[in-house]
Design a protein around this nucleic acid. Sequence first.
DNA 1: TTTTGGTGATAAATAATTGTTATGGGTGGT
DNA 2: ACCACCCATAACAATTATTTATCACCAAAA
Lengths: 306, 306
Amino acid sequence: MNLDYLQTFIAIARESHMTRAAEQLHLTQPAVSAQLSKLEDELGQKLFDRTSKGMVLTEAGRTFKVYAERSLAAMEDGRTALDELIGLRSGSLAVGGGATATTYLLPPVLGRFHEEQPEIRFFVREQSSQQSIVDVLEGKLDLGIVTLPIKAPNETREPISRLEIVPWVEDELRLIVPPDHPASGAKSFEWGDLDGQPLVLFEAGSAVREIIDERVEKAGIDLDIVMELRAIESIKQMVAQGIGAGFVSQFALSRADEGLRCLKDPISRRLAIAYRSDRTQSPAARAFFEMLQSQSSAGSDSSLSS
Amino acid sequence: MNLDYLQTFIAIARESHMTRAAEQLHLTQPAVSAQLSKLEDELGQKLFDRTSKGMVLTEAGRTFKVYAERSLAAMEDGRTALDELIGLRSGSLAVGGGATATTYLLPPVLGRFHEEQPEIRFFVREQSSQQSIVDVLEGKLDLGIVTLPIKAPNETREPISRLEIVPWVEDELRLIVPPDHPASGAKSFEWGDLDGQPLVLFEAGSAVREIIDERVEKAGIDLDIVMELRAIESIKQMVAQGIGAGFVSQFALSRADEGLRCLKDPISRRLAIAYRSDRTQSPAARAFFEMLQSQSSAGSDSSLSS
DNA sequence: TTTTGGTGATAAATAATTGTTATGGGTGGT
DNA sequence: ACCACCCATAACAATTATTTATCACCAAAA
C-alpha cells in the first residue's frame, strides 16, 4: 500500500473529479484511475461512485477519508519533526563531565548555545571521566568531557574501538593555601613545601586526584590528607577556613594569576571530548561539539566565557 | 512512499536486527536493507546506526518512529472502520416518506432492524413524496417511501434516469365518519354520499389529497372541506369530534375492518421504495431495503408489525 | 433524434520499482 | 588468524506503475 494512493484518493475526493485530481498530482488520468482501483480492491469496497459528471464519495469513501487524512498527516508531521531536528528547532543533548567541566567550563558554552538554539534540551551529568566514557559507549551520553589519559573501561561490553577522543582544553592545577599559610601570597611552590602539610583533596578515583597522587609519589613526599571532597567549591571553602591547602583547576579560580603554580613541572592535564564515531551524532550534538571546539581555540583565558 | 516501508522500519526498530526483521516480514535481508535505505533517503536522515551486532536507532529514528506508528495505526483504523460498515457494526441510514409511511409503516420495521443492528443510526424524515424523490436524487436520502405514480421533479438538476422505483405495499384509503354520522357503522360508501358533506382532509399537495381530489372530480360532486391538516392523527381526532368525515390510510386504523370502503372503486394507492441505482448503497441501506421487501410480502395485514 | 463534449475505464507498451540470489566488507569473538 | 555474524551491494528476475491511445458511457445541446 502506497501513501501516494491515499494522496490520490484525497485529491479525487477534494476535486470530485478524477481528471482534475490527476492534473494536480502531475499524473495522467489512467494512472489515477488505476491507483484508485487498487486502493478499492485492497480495502474491498468502492470508495467512489463514478458518474458522468465526476466522482461521488460512497459512505465507505466518506468513512475512509478521515483515516487516510490522518495517516498522511502523521507522515507529514514525522517529516516536519525530522526537519526540526536538523534545524535544531528540537532535539536534546546529553553531556557528561567532571566537576571542573560541568561547574566552570560548560556553563558559559551551554549558555551561549542555549541562546542560539533555545529549543534544544540539555542533560548535563557530573561524574567521573570513567563513567562518562562508559556512558558515551553505551549511548547514554552524546558527548563526554574527560581528562586524558583515559583508561579502557571494563564495566561495559561495548567495543572501545570507535571511541573518538578529541583534545579540548589544557588545564593547570594550582595550589591554593589558607590566608595565614606561610606560602600565602606566593606565586609558586615546590613539592617539598608540601611535605607533612595538611591537605584538602578531591576524593580518590577522580582524575585530578590521580594526577596529584602520581606527582606526589614521584616527588617522594608524604601528604597529610585531612579531608577528601567531591566538590570544588567545598575544597575552596575548606582551604579558606584554614583546614589545609588544596589543588584546584585554574578554571575554578576567579583571577588567572590566582593560586600557586608548580614552576619546575606544571601540573597540567588535558581535557578532551569523547564520543562514538560509529554512531550518528544528533544535529544538536554535532552543533554543540563544534561550538566546544571553537570556544577552546578562541578563548585561552581561564574563564572561557569570552 | 510505501506504507510497507514504515512497517519494515518498525520491525527493524523492534528487533534491533535487520535479518530477524526480514524473516518476520517474509522478506530477504537485502530487500529490507533496500527498503530502509529508500526510507532514509526520502527522509534525508539516517534512522539507524549499523553495528556489527545489529541496528541502533538514531535520534532521528527514535523521533520518526512515533509518527510511523501513528500513520500505520491510522490506516489500520481505517480498515477496521470499513469492515464495521460492511458488518453493519456502524453506519447510518436516512429514510424519507409520507405521513402514513413514517407514522405507521416504518416504525415496526425500524424497530426490528434496530434490534438486529443496534449500532446503525437512523434519520427518518416525514415529507412529501416529491421532496423524498428530490432528496434521494441529491443523495440526502438513502431510501424514500413514495406514493405512486411519481412525477418528475423539476427542482433539481440531478438526472432522473437512474432513479429506481420498487413497488412496496398496497394501501387503501378509508372513509371515517363521526360517531353520530348517518353512515356510522356502515361498511362502505359511495361518492354520492359525500356530496355537500363536511370533510376533514389532508392539505393540498399531499399524495393522499391528490388521489381524493382526482376521484371527487371524476364523481362530479362538490366537497365541503372544512379543514385541511397535515397529520393523520389530527384528522382522526377531528373526525371523532364530529367536525366532519375524512379519509385516512387503512394502516392508520387499528382494526382491519375499520372505516368505510368505496366498494365500486376502492381508493387504493401503491407505495414504493425509491433509491438511486447509480449510487452505491451503504451496507445498512441495502440491509434495510431487503428487510422492507421481505416485510411487505410476508405481512399483508394492516399493521405490518407481524 | 443525432451529435458533441466530457466523464472514467481499458489495453498495450514502456518505465520504474521491488525482490531474490550471490557475494563482499567490516567487526567482534574464538 | 580464522570464523561467524552483521549489513551493503550487484546483477538479474519479477512485479508494479505510468503513459499513450482508445473505448464506452452519459448528458446536454443541436
